[in-house]
């Protein structure tokens, strides 16, 4: 229907997460209509991130160079390692300004249905790092989903006896209304209640 070049653009756009074929068509036509420098700026931006941004050799976070900005920062405490699923989770934890250790990005969570087994995640690398850094604590900050829990359990088992292993608490969102909390969240918050 479209010329091969347009068709190719639509197909490439439709591979992006959250973009269906209809949206891909709309984006493609927008790009076709937009001035050349604007469209090429997008292409350059994509090329630039792919050329410049790699993964950190230490923690597998996104990095411009061999180490990410956190691993390169000498003030961070290397004996505390926070384990997350994806680089976007690092950003989320960093926003709290509460954490001064380093991170370890697994690159996903265990999910046999999707064919993700322990060797597909950077778990062996984590175990090596725990030894090398003489870590005193590993904070498991995988998502509170089934696959995130399974990943946390798997890692905790492997670290038992080597260092302190903690898991982020889960419960009610701050500023949220009890009335709107679902039963499971509220149930967890209940079992995790604390003395005041």
């Amino acid at each position: 229907m479209y010329s091969p070049a347009v068709e190719n653009l639509i197909t490439q756009l439709a591979r992006l997460p959250g973009i269906g074929r209809r949206t891909a068509q709309r984006l493609a036509f927008y790009i076709l209509r937009s001035p050349p420098d604007q469209a090429l700026a997008l292409a350059d931006a994509i090329r630039e991130v792919k050329e410049k941004i790699g993964v950190c050799e230490e923690c597998f976070n996104l990095a411009e160079g061999p180490l990410c900005s956190i691993c390169a920062d000498a003030r961070r405490d290397r004996t505390v390692i926070c384990v997350v699923e994806d680089p976007s989770d690092v950003v989320a934890v960093e926003r709290t300004h509460e954490y001064h250790g380093v991170y370890h990005v697994l690159g996903g969570a265990l999910s046999p249905i999707d064919g993700v087994d322990p060797e597909h995640l950077r778990i062996a690398e984590l175990l090596r790092r725990v030894e090398a850094n003489a870590a005193v604590e590993v904070v498991l900050a995988t998502n509170p989903t089934m696959t995130g829990e399974a990943t946390a359990v798997y890692i905790a088992d492997r670290l038992r006896g080597r260092c302190r292993v903690t898991r982020l608490a889960s419960g009610l969102p701050v500023g949220g209304d009890l009335e709107y909390a679902d039963e499971v969240t509220l149930g967890r918050a209940f079992s995790g209640r604390r003395e005041m």
Partner: peptide
């Protein structure tokens, strides 16, 4: 043979 039996540990627990 595509996964290690040890990978079952967390799923048994969960």
């Amino acid at each position: 043979g595509r996964a290690e039996p040890g990978a079952l540990d967390p799923w048994d627990r969960l």
